[in-house]
Amino acid sequence: EAVFQWVVRWWEAGTRPEAELLAVMKHVRFAIMDASFVQVIVRAWPALDSKEGRDVIVLSLLDAKLALRRWGFGAHLVYVLGGSFGNEAGEELSTVDVYDPRTNAWKQVASMPITRYQHAGVALDGKIYALGGYGVDILSSMDMYDPQSDSWHLLADMAYGRAVFAAAAAGGKIYVTGGADDNYGSMEMVEAFDPLLGAWAAVASMSVGR
């Protein structure tokens, strides 16, 4: 983040051709930045609001994603996110416990920003995502956990609140399928989240709600 902010100050201090900015930006490692910083600060900077500017960001993230797939990412850990320890109001959890099979031990890490139960969790490219479920009401929100900084970040909401649904990572995206809506009806709608774009998109629905 500090390198990007330095480049911003350098660029805004004078008048230079866009090609010079893009040449410098190719050496900025966007993939190791906090995801919320990229979404809120980097993508909002007008100097990169062109096809060429956006391509620099996307290509940097793609290169890092390919490296992660080649080399793997960290230890194989088991994350338990939220849930409920009873049937009464106030018994929902936001805590996160992590099990390490190598040491046969559990530890607590940063709690989710909100309580969730009957939700879904997905791991993708070294990050943990908690989606939907129930809090006070049915949830459409998604939070991302970064193990490197032990912190959670709110990302884009799904189009629909849903609980007791399935979620999976495939092809660099997160897919959510079916589940129960706020009237406890079965849903057939399917959505896909693209971390590079920071956005959800509808994909083909299932034949029936489930």
Rank of each mutant, 00 (worst) to 15 (best):
Q5P: 07
W6I: 15
W6N: 14
V7I: 09
V8Y: 06
R9V: 13
E12D: 11
T15Q: 08
R16L: 13
P17E: 14
E18N: 14
A23V: 10
V24D: 12
H27F: 10
H27Q: 14
V28P: 06
F30K: 10
M33K: 09
A35H: 06
S36T: 11
V38P: 04
Q39I: 07
V42D: 09
R43N: 15
W45D: 06
L48H: 02
L48G: 01
D49W: 11
D49L: 13
D49M: 14
S50P: 07
R54Q: 15
V56T: 15
V56D: 05
I57H: 08
S60H: 06
L62P: 02
A64Q: 08
A64R: 05
K65D: 15
K65I: 12
A67W: 03
A67D: 09
L68P: 04
W71P: 01
G72P: 04
G74A: 07
A75K: 09
H76S: 12
L77M: 11
L77W: 08
L77Q: 12
Y79A: 05
Y79Q: 06
Y79V: 00
V80M: 04
V80S: 05
L81T: 01
G83Q: 00
G86Q: 03
E92S: 08
L93F: 02
V96S: 02
D97R: 01
V98M: 03
D100G: 08
D100R: 05
D100L: 04
N104H: 05
N104E: 11
W106L: 10
K107R: 12
K107W: 09
K107P: 00
Q108H: 06
Q108C: 07
V109A: 05
A110L: 01
A110W: 00
T115E: 03
R116I: 00
Y117I: 07
H119E: 11
A120S: 15
G121I: 00
G121D: 05
G121M: 02
L124E: 09
D125F: 05
D125K: 00
K127F: 13
Y134M: 09
G135P: 01
G135K: 00
V136Q: 10
D137S: 14
I138D: 03
I138T: 07
I138W: 03
L139P: 00
M142I: 04
D143W: 04
Y145C: 03
D146L: 05
P147D: 13
P147M: 08
Q148C: 13
D150N: 14
H153F: 08
L155Q: 04
L155T: 15
A156C: 08
A159G: 12
A163S: 15
V164R: 08
F165N: 07
A167H: 01
A168T: 13
A168Q: 12
G171K: 04
G171D: 13
G172R: 00
K173C: 15
V176L: 05
V176G: 04
A180T: 11
N183C: 12
G185N: 11
S186M: 10
E191G: 12
P195M: 08
L196I: 14
L196Y: 11
L196F: 14
S205I: 07
S207E: 14
G209W: 03
R210Q: 14
